[in-house]
Nucleic acid binder design. Structure first.
Lengths: 102, 102
DNA sequence: ATATGATATGTCATTTTTGACATAGAGTCA
DNA sequence: TGACTCTATGTCAAAAATGACATATCATAT
């Protein structure tokens, strides 16, 4: 694992395999976190494209503005589930999601 | 929404927008569920390709055999997070995940 | 300057997801 | 037959994610 990337993730509050379990699963953990961050980024772009405020999107999802903000900020407390459901609520298709990944 | 598809999802124990909220958000909900089911399917194939038992995969993930079984069965109690982490643990790349979606 | 609208951040009780466990089915082999 | 391996299914306490709320920050317009 690249120390640099790890450092940058930790700075956002993520726990990236802390010191002792520094091998094996770490790569997958990092891939997972990066995947979520990629979706976060796309979520914000998507929402702005649609000219929606966080509050409006929250209402559609029956969620809350603060949760949307945390999602877009890449907060570790938000699940992939919510990210994906948000993107779908914004009209993203599975094809779109696929493009965000690759 | 196609009644047929809805019926088939409900039969697996999924709650697909029950009767009154039969419009609007339903499509996204269905897309979300189908997405999970697609990953479930791929998970089982992937695991078998790798010649791993559910228990072995569970150990890698620090999860349990029963959870893996539920994932592969498309049980509504499992999150996208766990599905994706499982696929990553099996060596799937983001590109692979993308292909599963599109 | 200050009011207004959007976004960020922290906290917390409630809900959902989790791993663990028990146990049941289903297949194979001696 | 029974022993063995793998998978399915149900339950539940513990852990994680959630929406709601308060409040802070940051523009930008008046």
């Amino acid at each position: 694992m690249k120390s640099l990337k790890k450092r940058s993730l930790e700075s956002k509050g993520w726990k990236v395999g802390s010191a002792r379990e520094f091998l094996n699963l770490s790569d997958e953990e990092v891939a997972y976190v990066e995947l979520k961050l990629a979706l976060s980024k796309n979520l914000q772009e998507y929402r702005r494209e649609k000219k929606l405020t966080q509050e409006e999107l929250a209402r559609r999802l029956k969620s809350s503005q603060s949760r949307i903000a945390k999602m877009e900020a890449g907060d570790p407390s938000v699940s992939l589930d919510l990210l994906v459901r948000s993107l779908l609520a914004l009209g993203a298709s599975r094809k779109h999601l696929a493009q965000m990944l690759s």
